[in-house]
Design a protein around this nucleic acid. Structure first.
Lengths: 213, 213
DNA sequence: CGAGCCCGTTTTGTATACAATTTTCATCGA
DNA sequence: TCGATGAAAATTGTATACAAAACGGGCTCG
């Protein structure tokens, strides 16, 4: 896990998310290698991975750049995620059956304790992972994993207030109801609004931040 | 274009599509390197690319395998493609405007000449590319590019008969109508059925092939 | 002026040797 | 017989040197 390639991957990722590398900036393999303390080989590996996850883009002449992260870009990501994960929820409702519903209910019950942000994040990650697994589509799971950059989820949750946590939990419960009854379209809509709502929370926080400056 | 990495990429891709490497088979870097005539470095690169395109999967211990290509897998791919490209059509109808409709109509008119398979494939690729570009979402375009393996489109089109070509052209025309009028949901449905229909043509051909054996 | 071209510099691509890890399989002991 | 063990073999990971390609700045020529 702490191989050079993983170190390079998480290192570059952090540099981007912390803003040490600005959107649009060119990523030079040698410079990154020196900065992170590994050779260029694992750096190249990490760049390919980050490219698959839309953190990094490559020009036609193979140079790497930090991808844009404007509110429009985040909107695009949340829109795609809402569609794909809505589809996952619909499939989970169709093929998951009572066994899946039971597992989800257990996760939701465990997550219903207090307002600790980290505990909620754990619960949230478990819940969504279970639904995606329940859809039983490897490619869908892979696409979602690439699309959903957990740090964005985290940054969103940090600005959640008590009311928003409760709404999330409420939506999770409704999702379990829909899956339990095998109602694919109900599950799809709940999941879609769940994710779109998360985007708008993020959006408002970003605008508030902008006004402060 | 004819760099070692590209040679490795298209070489391995061909080996998989020709069946020289069977689904589930392990891909050994050194063996591939020798077979293709480049060193392991570009082979590793190619494997990452093929992994992003769902041709290759990796085990938890970093070994690479040829991905499954069962009818169920193809179904999964077409389903995801129908959803994403349906979304692209809806967005294109919303943001593309008359300019996009005009460009599309030109492409369709050019494609309406005879029953040459290759000409149809060119027309088809142009048409879909224009719509995806018209949606104006880089990440969506990237995801679709990774998901849609042209060889499958080709293999599907090879079994198209005259009637099916005509239906495709008809659907393309209807799509242009929908986009011209800015009707996102109409565009989405036409695109979705267009792609689902293509899957079932492929499916029937695959079953016919199976019965022959 | 400005478009195009040349050449030094920067950056990425490739091969290769060696290191680390994983797998395989033979052996041992209960 | 079964499972554990450990060493050999197979496979992937990493560093590094050199090759190739792309970029940039200054030059010429119209």
């Amino acid at each position: 896990m702490s191989s050079a390639a993983d170190k390079a991957y998480s290192g570059i990722r952090s540099l981007i998310l912390d803003g040490a590398l600005a959107p649009g900036e060119q990523l030079k393999e040698e410079e990154l290698a020196e900065r992170i303390g590994v050779s260029r080989t694992p750096i190249r590996d990490a760049l390919r991975r980050l490219e698959a996850e839309f953190f990094v883009t490559r020009s036609d002449s193979q140079r790497s750049f930090v991808a844009d992260q404007s509110v429009e870009d985040i909107d695009e990501i949340f829109t795609l995620r809402a569609m794909l994960e809505g589809h996952a929820a619909a499939r989970a409702a169709t093929v998951g059956g009572p066994a899946l519903a039971a597992r989800l209910r257990e996760i939701v019950d465990k997550g219903d304790n207090g307002s600790d942000v980290d505990a909620f994040l754990d619960h949230n990650a478990d819940f969504h992972a279970e639904i995606i697994a329940g859809a039983g589509s490897d490619r869908l799971a892979t696409m979602l994993a690439r699309l959903v950059s957990q740090p964005i989820v985290h940054r969103t949750a940090r600005v959640y207030d008590k009311d928003q946590f409760e709404r999330s939990l409420f939506e999770h419960r409704e999702l379990v109801d829909a899956i339990e009854r095998g109602d694919a379209e109900w599950a799809r809509s709940v999941m879609t609004s769940h994710i779109r709502r998360a985007f708008h929370v993020f959006e408002e926080a970003a605008q508030a931040l902008k006004r402060e400056k």
